[in-house]
């Protein structure tokens, strides 16, 4: 079996319609998916279970995505993080990349592109 196909992905996204669409797309590629809607639960979930990548929305309730990202990196967790956000200004993208994001995709987005970026990130 292809090692890539058992990768487990955590999706932190508060819009259920969008997270279900992403999950559908990723599951079609045989990824194992878990969805979380609130930022404060992401770190605990990553520590509790082993994931291969995180797809992170920046506008999460309770604790925003930037804070989540900073806490992940402060805890020295080397999980690949793909930020998916409506914030499309160059400074927002640079801020997230400086805070430790590996990839950045802006909304509106193309699910095919998201999948490709995820694959590229996992391959690296």
């Amino acid at each position: 079996m292809d090692a890539e196909k058992t990768d487990k992905i955590l999706i932190a996204e508060d819009d259920a319609s969008i997270s279900r669409l992403i999950a559908y797309k990723f599951e079609k590629e045989d990824y194992i998916i878990k969805v979380i809607e609130e930022g404060d639960k992401v770190l605990a979930e990553i520590k509790a279970d082993s994931y291969d990548a995180l797809v992170l929305d920046l506008m999460l309730p309770v604790l925003d995505g930037m804070q989540v990202l900073k806490r992940i990196r402060e805890a020295e967790i080397k999980l690949p993080v793909l930020v998916l956000s409506a914030k499309s200004q160059e400074e927002d993208i640079l801020k997230a990349l400086n805070a430790g994001a590996d990839e950045y995709v802006t909304k509106p987005f193309r699910p095919d592109e998201l999948l490709l970026r995820l694959k590229k990130m996992l391959a690296n």
């Binding site: 819009d15 319609s17 969008i18 669409l21 409506a86 909304k107 509106p108 987005f109 193309r110 699910p111 095919d112 592109e113």
Partner: peptide, 12 residues
């Protein structure tokens, strides 16, 4: 609504 807002390109 959420799909019209969040998808672009060929999906839109």
């Amino acid at each position: 609504k959420p799909y019209l807002k969040n998808l672009k390109g060929d999906n839109f």
